[in-house]
Every structure is written in structure tokens, then in C-alpha cells.
Design a protein around this nucleic acid. Sequence first.
DNA 1: GCAGTTCCGACACAACTTCGTCACCTCTCC
DNA 2: GGAGAGGTGACGAAGTTGTGTCGGAACTGC
Lengths: 228, 228
Amino acid sequence: MSARILVIEDNADLAQGIAYNLKLEGYDVRITPDGRAGLDEAVRWKPDLILLDLMLPGLDGFEVLRALRGDGSRIPVIILSARAEEADKVRGFKLDADQYVTKPFGVLELLERVAALLRRTGHTATPREETLTFGDVRIDLACRTVAKAGQEITLPPKAYELLLALVRRHGAVISRHDLLREVWGYGASVVSRTVDTHVAELRRKLEDDPTTPRHILTVWKIGYRLHS
Amino acid sequence: MSARILVIEDNADLAQGIAYNLKLEGYDVRITPDGRAGLDEAVRWKPDLILLDLMLPGLDGFEVLRALRGDGSRIPVIILSARAEEADKVRGFKLDADQYVTKPFGVLELLERVAALLRRTGHTATPREETLTFGDVRIDLACRTVAKAGQEITLPPKAYELLLALVRRHGAVISRHDLLREVWGYGASVVSRTVDTHVAELRRKLEDDPTTPRHILTVWKIGYRLHS
DNA sequence: GCAGTTCCGACACAACTTCGTCACCTCTCC
DNA sequence: GGAGAGGTGACGAAGTTGTGTCGGAACTGC
């Protein structure tokens, strides 16, 4: 049985996007657009994890969380907030939130945290692989480390997330647009060479011969593709 | 239930052509020829996706989009524009368009983008086939790769799309005119050797003996036909 | 502040597309 | 069945477009 995740978020598009990605991971997902309904659903449906926006119509996120904890519920909660302010963060943790993620965030990062939190709380629903490999490259998800031919390689955060995005859809073509959205969390497409720059970095560090890549391939006019 | 698509486009021929192809894909399609009516329809019918021309009588495309977003609507929008100017593009994305396609465009490309966008927003209406084959050639749609006898072959964008167009109507004769329209988005009365050139490329790469093609056949004075 | 990282624009280059030419082939008509 | 007309295949040159790369600016965490 797959883990149940409740998304309490009023921005429908964002909620849909998150839900889509969570479903792809095999989770059972429900969405509620406001605090009151979210609280009801949390009590009735008993999800294994809650993603909670702070800015909500009706009851705001803090109140939802307080009400939940007041009932003695120990459901793990990840707060999604537009505000990075320390005060909010502290307030969130005081109310026993488990994670605090500030927008804009990469979907991959969120998925990673969800998986980690579920693992920790024992709902290891989809026993995900702890390591991924292609060619002579091995990625250790838990340690967040990458090794090529046994040799550990340091990748900056963005490069690492980009690599994850490529590996997750291993084999399929992914457009720059999608990569920007998944890794950077940009709304719409931005014209920039950012993706290319980071791809170049990955090639430099992971390919035997960066000038003739054998794994991180360019698909003309479309994007990139990872090939084992 | 099939996804609903609203086409706001004043060029009746173009709109009909697009609608025809979308319906073939199984979508529920409506057309409105001007901005005001389009906006009304968008609000009342609540489509899952909107194809929006910029040059419209009455309200222009930008205004329609602004009005939509102003209402808080998050319906995905693909802008169809005759102008490729960067300024328009930026303006479109500023108003939160999801895609920006410049005319002339191939219908296949448009279908591809529509499917991708619907998939992303969760309206994964038609779980499309993953691979297509004829003879010893296999086309992997997700990877956008073509393999002959297990050997991977690289095809440039136009050649790939041309191949898709032929495979889609596998067995039937397709005129150069239709191919130009579907793949290139050219209107009627365009004469050019472009199709022939790309067919030659496909034969060179996919036929055992390119001089006596067994799959990509010429139909005299008509066009081409794909035979398994 | 300093080192590391991220982002962006400029430029050169490479891949791709298109077009023109010529030879050859298919069909038609006599 | 041969000659002519017009369609098609092959090839290469020119033009167009997208990508790789590099260096610097802005930013962040220490």
C-alpha cells in the first residue's frame, strides 16, 4: 500500500504540479485548497504526510498545524512557505513541523525530502533505491554523493539536482524548459544558457571525454537525454 | 473523459486544421474566432488548455491572457504567434503563457506540445504509445530515438518529424503538400524540393539499399507511402 | 572579504535546413 | 517503341539556427 500524502495549498497550479510528481512516485495524493477543509481531511483521511502551505484562505497554515498537534496528531508535516523569514521558520518548528521549504523550490528537492521523511517515520512505502547508476557513475541518494569509477566527485547543489532530474527520467528526452521548471522551479520558460552551462559542468566532471559525451546527450532543438 | 481544448484563432482555415487534428487525437475541441468570445468561452466552458492567437479582432491575445490571469485562472495557454520577436515572447511569458509557438509551425509539433502540457498538468488523457515500428526500424517516442536492427540512428529534427508523419499514416499515400502542411506548417501552393531531400535522408539512413527502397516508397505524381 | 557557485551574454562553431543544378527515370502521346 | 515532357533522385553549396564554451558579474555562505 502506497503512502498517503495530503497537499494543503490554495494555488491550484502549484498543487497540481506537486501532486502530479508525487503520483509519479507512486504516492496516494489528495489536494485541499483551504485550511479548514485541509484540517478535516487530515483528521478523516489520516495521511502519512502533509504538505502545508502557510498562506491559506480561512485558517492559515500555522493554525492548521496547531490544531493538528493539539489533537495529538503526530503526522509528519512539511511546511511550504513563500516567506523565508526566520521568524516564520522558528514559529513553524515550535509547532513541530518537520521540514520547512521556502518557495520557489525545486520539485526534486521536495520529492527528496518527502521520501526522506517517510523513510524516517517508517512509511517506507516505495522502498526506493538508495543508489542510482549509469555508466561508471554511481549516485548515492542518502549521502548525496556522486562517484565516477569509484572516485568521489563533488557536485554543487544545482549540478546535483540537474543530474537527478536527468537520471530520474533516464533515457527520455527532457527539454530545457522542463529542466528549468523541475530543477529551478521557474514558472514559465526563461531564455538563458543556464541549463547548458550546468550540463557542460556535468559533462566535464562525469564524461570520460567531455567533447564527445557518451552519457549526457544533446537532442537537437529539444533538450538533453541521459544514456547508460 | 477527454481533455477540453479551446482554440482562439481568427484564421478559420488554420483553426479548422488544428481542430481537426486535435479531434483525431481524441480531444474535445471548440473554436472561437475573436478575443471577446474566446474569453467568455474560456470562463464558461472551463477548458483544460487554450491555444491562443495573438493577432485577434477585438481583444488581442495579450489582453485575453491578461484578463484570464487577472481572474485567477491557471488554465495552461499555448500562444500561437506570427511574430517571432523576442519582445512578444517575453511579454507572453510575463503574462504566464506556458508555451510560445511561432507560425508557421507543424501540426505534429503542436500536438506534441499539447500532449506534454496536458500530461504535466495531470490531464493525462491519452496514454500514448511508447514505440512505433516498421520493418526492422523501431521508433521510441519518449527517447526520441530511432533504431534500425537494434542499432541506434540519429535523425535531425525535421527528418524525425517527417518519419513520424509517415508512420502515423502508415500504409497510406501522403502527398508532398500534406507533408509540407503537417510537418512544416506551410500553406498551400508552396512548391519545393524540401520534402524530397528529407525523404532521401531517411532512405539513406533507414533502408538496407537506399537506391531500391522497400519501406519508404515513391508514388508517382502523388507523394510517398510507408510500407512495413 | 574570500572562495565557491550560479547566472548570463558574446562569440565561434557545428548541425541542420533549404535550394539549385543536373542526370535519370517514368509516363504519355504519337 | 521512341521522343518529349515533366517528375524524381542525388549531390553539394549557401544560409539559417541552435549549441558549446568562455569569461565576467552577481550572489551566498563561511
